[in-house]
Design a binder for these strands. Structure first.
Lengths: 287, 287
DNA sequence: CTGAAAGCGCTTACAG
DNA sequence: CTGAAAGCGCTTACAG
């Protein structure tokens, strides 16, 4: 059916061990190497990765589990991770949990069944509190969401600092009742705030839309601020004040931590904390 | 090292063939099935997918190659494909070519090395013209981009119709010099158009930004219209006229075509053409 | 219904 | 530098 290493061996007149060696860059005489390479081209041989992974006992697959693929933050993260993996000759298998802990649990199972070499993991909000109780069967780097006292490598934004800066800015501009929108756990429902802070750009957009249809003047009746400097935040009127996260850096850093961990399993646990950048726009100009 | 089917067999006091049968839902007596299931739980056994795939000669992996992961259209597509795959017990391996034909070629190679069961493929602009010359070693469904006279299953939007509707609408509103922005091949550079149509939401956003910094009044001096009803298009001032594509439907349809093809390889080539919906907003209100 | 044997396509010691 | 042998963890005919 499919062309195997045996076919190449036969055509080249060598053993399959030798073919395997030229494929893997082992010690082979120039003359033999040439013959094998010709045979590979002639036969159109492509290695079967399943077989290679089974035998060599490492898959070179990086698992990437994100909590919401519609969130541009995660899209950018995926892109950065994929970029690095591509350069390193690693494959990445992507899973989107959509904030569903059950799907997440299933995907973690699957990652084990795939025998992935390592995992980059943005857990659901539910899971982030019970990370310590999780048994991960492979080197893992948490990203974006990670409890403070962790035993797992992580790269996160200094969220308290960023939130603090945002709130401080709002107070300075005269806002006093500041509400928060953080996914499922919003703290603001009945509180009639005069300023709203959201934890991602999807919520920010939702808040803007709601404020508009409620006929609230921004920033006069309601200030708006949030996370992620998406391009639309500067195209709407007024522009929205946001914290910009170095997402791509975070993705690359996560891959670096993971690759180091793979090479040196005994490394101490590392936690990379990045800082956001406040971009002040009209949406928080004052009452 | 890792727990294998042999360990389970030993604990349950049966052969590994029998363990394999309970795993695969083969004919096994209730009593034996029970013993094996207990053994699986005791040992914490998880099958090794690489081995299973190698032996069974089908991987159950769906390749998904997209041209630009930053484009929300593709994000939505990924999400829909992943959703269906998840339900069907299939894995999806995602590749982002970033419109680079070289990366694309490499990824197609890799897909073959992975021995994927099928591919959902949104080719780069460069490749879309030479699709016929490509040798795909697996059932493939083209999506979003596909030449008209294809020998490969595809699901596309009726682009000519959508573009036509957009242009007709613009003409009706009094615009006469209509330019197009279609990725690398824009046709409008030196033409000083009074209306601009773009082929995706990323270009649309770029055009809006450029128009603003050039100080052009929309829709008075320049009309703007494009593809994909992203939420920001109704939040900017004026709202942007767009064609809404049924992206998620397209993703699900692509998976359906692929699954059918896997089950019935001899099916004739099918081409699914979807229609867009024009959403008229202020950006094309007239001169 | 159950087990022993063969084999998927590779890599990796082990000899020479 | 090269080859023969063993084996990664499974599934799948083949007997019984």
């Amino acid at each position: 059916m499919s062309i195997s290493i045996n076919d190449v061996a036969r055509v080249a007149g060598v053993s399959k061990s030798t073919v395997s060696r030229v494929l893997g860059g082992g010690p082979v005489s120039e003359e033999v190497r040439g013959r094998v390479e010709v045979a590979i081209r002639q036969t159109g041989y492509r290695p079967n990765l399943q077989a290679r992974r089974l035998r060599s006992r490492h898959t070179g697959i990086i698992g990437l589990i994100v909590a919401d693929i519609r969130n541009p933050f995660f899209t950018a993260l995926i892109r950065a991770v994929e970029e690095v993996a591509y350069r390193e000759g690693l494959r990445v298998t992507l899973c989107n949990t959509d904030e569903d802990p059950e799907r997440e649990a299933l995907y973690l199972q699957l990652m084990h069944e795939e025998r992935i070499s390592g995992l980059i993991f943005a857990p659901t909000r539910t899971t982030v509190g019970r990370l310590e109780r999780l048994t991960l069967d492979f080197p893992t780097v948490l990203v974006d969401r990670a409890a403070a006292s962790g035993s797992i490598d992580s790269v996160v934004l200094d969220n308290p600092a960023a939130m603090g800066a945002l709130v401080e800015h709002l107070v300075e501009r005269g806002y006093r009742r500041i509400g928060g929108l953080f996914g499922s756990t919003s703290t603001t429902a009945a509180e009639r705030p005069d300023a709203l802070v959201t934890s991602n750009s999807l919520l920010l957009m939702g808040a803007l839309k709601a404020a508009r249809s409620a006929g609230l003047a921004i920033p006069g009746e309601l200030a708006l601020a949030g996370f992620d400097n998406e391009r639309w935040t500067e195209l709407v009127e007024p522009g929205i004040t946001v914290v910009e996260q170095p997402v791509e850096d975070m993705g690359r850093a996560a891959m670096s931590l993971l690759l180091e961990r793979l090479r040196m399993p005994e490394l101490p646990v590392r936690r990379l904390v990045m800082t956001g950048r406040c971009v002040v726009r009209g949406s928080t100009a004052g009452r």
